[in-house]
């Protein structure tokens, strides 16, 4: 299992666009992926579950992946956080 922390740095936080981007990315991997806020773990493939994290700008989340492509999955997600989900 691979685990890394990521900072929500886009202004709008976990709004529809950011969450949709995450779900679409997670769907490309085989590994089970979760995002957690203070231990509250949510399914990376569920748009509704992720929105319930209510993660706004400045929130630190823990990304966990478990499966054959876990490293690649976590790297991809961390990059999405870093580029602020394409938000200008």
């Amino acid at each position: 299992m691979v685990s890394r922390r990521a900072l929500v740095s886009n202004r709008l936080g976990f709004h529809l666009r950011a969450v949709s981007t995450i779900v679409e990315a997670c769907s490309k991997f085989k590994a089970g992926i979760t995002l957690a806020r203070d231990g509250d773990r949510r399914n990376g493939r569920s748009i509704l579950d992720l929105m319930m994290l209510e993660a706004d700008m400045g929130t630190v989340l823990t990304i966990e992946a478990d499966g054959v492509d876990e490293t690649e999955a976590v790297d991809t997600l961390v990059k999405l956080f870093e580029c602020r989900f394409g938000e200008e």
């Binding site: 949709s20 779900v23 679409e24 399914n43 493939r45 569920s46 748009i47 509704l48 579950d49």
Partner: peptide
Amino acid sequence: LLMLTDPLF
């Protein structure tokens, strides 16, 4: 469309 395939829902 993502909600339609949402695993939780």
